[in-house]
Write a protein that binds this DNA or RNA. Structure first.
Length: 488
RNA sequence: GAGAAUAUAGCUCAGUCGGUAGAGCAACUGCCUUUUAAGCAGUGGGUCGAAGGUUCGAGUCCUUCUAUUCUCACCA
């Protein structure tokens, strides 16, 4: 590194600006290769980072990498002159250069750029890890790949330079979000923004991050969900609203959880959860086709088909199917015994709904690899969902499970302000008993409902998990640029 | 929060029974005008994650700490 600092000074002394302002780029690596025609000496101007250098005395080959890929450059002393060639010899892997020249094919058949002039665009002072690759029978073999996961996450910029598949994943993530946004927008729904700093957090069962507003001298929370604000907008008269939202939950970290994560929430007036299931099927299928060109993805070693319709089964039926026990009509005590028979150790504080959720999460969910709508949850587990139109004690709610993990959560939204108040107040009681994930009574939200909210279907989709599924990535850290790590 | 594993050169990794630190690539110096893991000859490069301890002597054994990875718990 010391050497490179000296080189930078040396270049400046010899009249080369190591950090010029701009360079006129006319094309990119993959376009040159794609549109190459042998008879043609097409003039090009291209820029990128030097990734390999092969010096052979008075001529050299090197590869540059731009945002699309790599291309080989041929540089000959006779063409660029003694001074320029001497400057070239001072360059390092990692430096960013601009080249003007023309396209040609080498003796060994590689489409390349014959440089006529080149210009240093940015001097790199730190060596980047070099991964060399070789074609063996058409397969790319990579040697000495930059693979230390901690460094890859801490210094994602290097990961992106050195490991092209990482870049591809994030490009696909962007395409997924762009497609979903277009999907929602063309249906006529409005993209909105709601507060991240909230005086009362709500909309989910989770522990929040707290922060403090100095001027107002008040405690604020980073949102755990945006549900209650979006429903206020439905009260306000919008037919459909959605928000791609960073949410924050103060909980453990593993390969499915990051403390900040992205969720899209959607609320559409006059619809119910049955309608929403169709929307989810259509959305997943079309997104997969749009970004992958196929409706099948491979995740954790399983082929998953996203072709509608997805299987639908009630949570009670799913437990009957996978555990062979019937939970229908059982009270808390009976459910507790059932769970014990299945071998589950349960906290004595949790109620009937939570017991069902535990049984489901332990024995059913991991087995649901193909996309499956689990429907009709116990009311107790779902304080914001509307009572089922025909089944007592049950709400109109579904979760979509795929690859053994929850991807979406949705319900026919509860819009009876009196019932909603009762539900939140019983949450408050759970809270007093020590359940720090129980919800808080949000008086303004209840006031909004009292003015009248139309029937409404709501949906939340975990974007990170959806990207994992569609990209075949097995860790959430591989679909978030900068996953949370402890400080170095 | 619990358990297991890992931490050695810029990167990827060896390092035997405790005896003065090794390789490939990268870097540096030569040679080389169509190479592609370019080649050939030579050179330099280390607080062995941190702090203690045992020992004549520690990369290696012991203790504590830190970070990461994986699994489990909580959660989406």
């Amino acid at each position: 590194m010391q050497r490179r600092y000296e080189e930078r000074l040396h270049l400046m002394e010899s009249g080369v600006n190591p950090y010029p302002c701009a360079f006129d780029v006319t094309t990119c690596s993959v376009d040159i290769i794609e549109f190459f025609q042998d008879e043609e000496r097409k003039p090009v101007s291209i820029a990128g980072r030097i990734m390999t250098i092969r010096k052979m005395g008075k001529a050299s080959f090197f590869n540059i990498q731009d945002s699309k890929g790599r291309i080989q450059i041929y540089l000959k002393k006779d063409d660029v002159g003694d001074t320029a060639y001497a400057t070239f010899k001072l360059l390092d892997i990692g430096d960013i250069v601009g080249i003007k020249g023309y396209t040609f094919r080498t003796k060994t058949g590689e489409v390349s750029v014959h440089a006529e002039t080149f210009e240093l665009l940015s001097k790199s002072l730190r060596p980047i890890p070099i991964a060399k690759e070789k074609d063996v029978d058409g397969q790319k073999v990579v040697y000495d790949a930059f693979s230390d996961k901690e460094m890859r996450y801490r210094q994602r910029y290097i990961d992106l330079i050195v490991n092209p598949e990482v870049r591809d994943t994030f490009i696909k993530r962007s395409a997924i979000v762009a497609f979903m946004r277009q999907f929602f927008t063309t249906k006529g729904w409005l993209e909105v923004e709601t507060p991240i700093l909230q005086p009362i957090y709500g909309g989910a069962a989770a522990r929040p991050f707290t922060t403090h507003h100095n001027a107002l001298d008040m405690q604020l929370y980073l949102r755990i969900a945006n549900e209650l604000y979006l429903k206020r907008l439905i009260v306000g008269g919008f037919d459909g609203v959605f928000e791609f939202a960073k949410d924050f939950r103060n909980e453990g970290i593993d390969r499915f959880h990051n403390p900040e994560f992205t969720q899209v929430e959607l609320y559409v007036a006059y619809k119910d959860y049955n309608w929403m299931m169709k929307q989810v099927e259509e959305l997943l299928y079309r997104t997969s086709i749009a970004v992958n060109g196929t409706d099948t993805v491979t995740f954790l070693g399983s082929d998953i088909s996203l072709k509608p319709p997805f299987r639908r089964i009630t949570i009670a039926d799913s437990i009957r199917e996978y555990c062979g026990v019937d939970i229908g009509g059982k009270n808390e005590q009976e459910l507790r015994l059932t769970a014990k028979d299945l071998g589950l150790e349960l906290d004595s504080k949790i109620g009937a709904g939570k017991i069902i959720d535990e049984i489901f999460g332990e024995f059913v969910e991991p087995k649901l690899i193909q996309p499956t709508f689990i429907t009709d949850y116990p009311t107790e587990m779902s304080p914001l969902a509307k009572e089922h139109r025909s089944k007592p004690g049950i709400v109109e709610r579904f979760e979509l499970i795929a690859g053994g993990k929850e991807l979406c959560n949705s319900f026919s939204e509860l819009n009876d302000p009196v019932v909603q108040r009762e539900r939140l107040e019983s949450q408050a009681k759970l809270r007093q008993r020590g359940d720090d994930e129980a919800m808080i009574v949000d008086e303004d939200f209840l006031r909004a409902l009292e003015y009248g909210m139309p029937p409404c279907a709501g949906l939340g989709i975990g974007i990170d998990r959806m990207v994992m599924l569609l990209c075949g990535q097995e860790s959430i850290r591989d679909v978030i640029f900068f996953p949370h790590l402890k400080p170095e």
